[in-house]
Amino acid sequence: MDRNVIVDKNVITQASTIDTTKKISLLRRMKKYKMFYFFIAPFFILFAIFSLFPIIASFFIGFTEWNGMGTPEWVGFENYIRLYHDPVFIKSLLNTLYIWFFSTVLTLGLAFILAFMVNYYIRRAKGFYRVVFLFPLLVAPALTAVMISVIFSTNSGIMNMFLSFFVEGTVKIEWLRSETWIKPLIVLIIIWRWTGYHFILFLAGLQTISSDVYEAAKIDGASGGQIIRKITLPLMLPIIMVSVLTATVGGIQIFDEPYVLTQGSGGTNDAGLSMAMYLYQNAFEYFDFGIASAQSYILFALILIFTLINSRFLRNRT
């Protein structure tokens, strides 16, 4: 018994001395590396104030009722329950998923076709195409939306004029007020803006695939379709997944385009209302900060889920 106790004591004193020497050496090491903290300080101070703190605080405000004045009142999960039963919120969620899905698939698809063509069929002027398709990225999304709303305006839009060539009389489709067309227009803006960006990434990826691989496949008698499916796509997958992630993070947060196209209203029957827009309306038009914070976290969670799925997918593949 006694011996046991003594042994235990020894262990304890030993452990604590290790602990204190560890602590001292940690402090000493931190002192030695004080310049590290000095250099990263400006960023982390700004980051703590303008990113980290708001995100943490937002989580708690999501469980309160608050209009920005007075003290927030704790309401538990009520904001989340209210959102679940709010048809406008559900609509904004579905709209966002619609916009995200179609814009991502169509943009990346078109970008891939372009990159493929330029890489294998275009000998000259590759640089020219890289420049041309990147032009839209230089126009602010809000101003792109203004441009699109001019092109698709009912009475003098060039789109209606173009369609009038094919039918008798003049076409007067109300693109911007239509419940059917507002989302495709938003998708169109995203395609126009982002195709060039992904095209350049894909082109860079395709250029790293050596032509020997294709030669070997051809010798083995693989068809064009087989080559694309079995060689090009698998080799390009990491780049495609990064593009999917970029497009997703942007798509879920879409705000400028629907806001400008619908002039802040969300369009007829909220057909063009995105999650970010509804969040903005709740926060800065109705000053319902609790609901808005809950919405922020739903948005955050969606992006987190997509990011995790994406990275899991990438890790499994590589």
């Binding site: 605080a57 937002s58 922020s296």
Partner: peptide
């Protein structure tokens, strides 16, 4: 430097965080 890894993780981990996640407290600040 001690804590290097953690600071680096914070930088990398916050790249994907949407600015809207903390918009209400940000506005109050």
């Amino acid at each position: 430097a001690p804590g290097y890894k953690w600071f680096f993780y914070i930088v990398v981990g916050s790249i994907m965080v949407p600015p809207l996640a903390g918009i209400v407290p940000w506005f109050m600040e």
